[in-house]
Design a protein around this nucleic acid. Sequence first.
DNA 1: GAGTGGTCTAGACCACTTC
DNA 2: AAGTGGTCTAGACCACTCC
Lengths: 253, 253
Amino acid sequence: MGTTQLESVPEPKYWHLKTVLSEALDSEFSVGEILPNERDLAARFGVARATLRQALEQLELEGRLQRRRGVGTTVAPPRVGVAVGTRQHAWPGAAGDAWQPVDSAQAVPPAAVVAALETGADEAVHTVRRSRMSHGQQVATELLYVPAASVPGLTAIDAPSGAARARAVLRELQHLLLEGEDRAVELGSARADDARALDRLPGSPVLVVTTRFLAQGRTAVLSVATYRADTCRLTFGDSAGVEIHHDPQQRAS
Amino acid sequence: MGTTQLESVPEPKYWHLKTVLSEALDSEFSVGEILPNERDLAARFGVARATLRQALEQLELEGRLQRRRGVGTTVAPPRVGVAVGTRQHAWPGAAGDAWQPVDSAQAVPPAAVVAALETGADEAVHTVRRSRMSHGQQVATELLYVPAASVPGLTAIDAPSGAARARAVLRELQHLLLEGEDRAVELGSARADDARALDRLPGSPVLVVTTRFLAQGRTAVLSVATYRADTCRLTFGDSAGVEIHHDPQQRAS
DNA sequence: GAGTGGTCTAGACCACTTC
DNA sequence: AAGTGGTCTAGACCACTCC
């Protein structure tokens, strides 16, 4: 008889800890409730604080917990579904879109953006910063790159500064005929300014949605939107979105 | 004269380190190249190994680095664009889709899946496991939940076991008329089995794509696909996808 | 067996929020 | 001032890969 391969792959402590905490969150805590502090929790489970933190970090990544410096760790509400790419064939700023213009400027975009815009390196580009709220919370920031050629009617009078300038750029966009759009989603980490806007620490995980709007056979607008990965579930398509929460990957029995 | 508020917000060491390393990757290393080991790197920068690792973890999260236990840390190639949701109105398993059937079984799905399927808790559900390759690398695993009602023609003879059974389920699906689909993307962490399939460690960040396929006014299939977040950029829409690499969020000058 | 990244410890101090 | 999470250290040992 061979040795029964028991625990040939012992799981790490933080992994087991995460499982235990996850089950405790289901059964013993309710949304918004404050957990014991990290030092107490670590002592209770007989591990170093760093190990406990590794488990908490994973749970926060999965949207189960929310941690705030100086305050504590709370049980997070289920992720909010945020619609992306509904109302196909609508320009940014079209009536009723979920974004709020914040600011605008004229700038020389980074090389990668120039390549995607297929403009010359020296062509003037307007940037528009927008933000998006959902359920009373800031969930995303966006930076639009608009080549001057896409908004030929824009004048200095239309676009004084700040939010007014942003609105003027968006208004001019509506004159173009939208021919299509391209979208990509990837994982990123929040830059310092985005982190501030999203009330997160720099480096926290974000979902970066890059959208290219096409008109007249060119890229007329490039949008780079940064969503909080901990609190957002991006939904695509016609209806309200799939409603599987908490553990979409849970194993079938 | 007031004190010039210099370094009122001193950035953490690991953050600065990440920036320095990131620039070094751009200028001094090429894709596939092996970095010095963590102990040497930490010594070179005068920090503890844990601090260095914090920086490396971020860079790996952003898809800049790839680390493998027992081997070393290498410079990662740019993320591969993986098409999701092209060929709208095609069932899983339709001709030419990117997935490869692996296995199939009949199971009682978790409660959250039952809710999304809108089936009774006791209704029989087939599961189909598939995997997806891209550029010679495994990029995703998928678990399909197919209520028995969606594949009425399926018989035990059609579905012996394993991959053959999976193909039989998919084949039966094609008889239905697809009426629409719903899709959601969120951040998750790899479960142990998914991690093994994707050649990652348990807990590594993944993009979870949940798709609900509608037919006859009900959810006919539910798909939960798990993509490697470090190497994948999910693309949506008509054309090949937006091609901004490395730092899509970089600030305009 | 040598070398790599992954886990873990037991401390310390800092930045921030709240009272 | 007290209490929280965030950063950082200097070690140790383990799991894995490769020679």
